[in-house]
Amino acid sequence: MNVEDFQDLLDAYGPDLNAWQDGEREVAERLLEDSPEARRRLASAWELEARLHVALLPAPVPPGLREAVLQVPRRHPRASRPPAWGWGMRLAWGGSFGAVLASGVLGFVLGAGLLSPGDDPLESVDVVALVYGAEEDLP
């Protein structure tokens, strides 16, 4: 490890060597013993760290925002919305249509011979995704 490698690790992991992985910390500590420049870089990294923490402190929440956010359920009542999210609601609202569409898809698949021996059958999740669409950005 040279001084530039050490600088990159300081920037990536931060200047608290105790938070580094053991192997990298041990090599860094040997470098610090031998290199005044490495010691200067470490001190400078601590200074930048402290200044960034101060400069980027979380801003206080402005008055009124909390109340506005708490009104979200009132402004967006879920019961009156079309079934955009959740399998339960989708099944409840779109079950009949989905069943018809699923039958059509399955019939097409069987008719096209895609389930013949040697081919990969469609996973059930694929059929479901075809019928109902994939989830958005929630895990």
């Binding site: 956010v69 979200v72 879920r78 609601m89 929630l138």
Partner: peptide
């Protein structure tokens, strides 16, 4: 912030 919590509210069932 309001949009984030609106999305949380709307997408919570998923």
């Amino acid at each position: 912030t309001q949009e984030v919590f609106t999305r949380l509210w709307l997408k919570a069932p998923a």
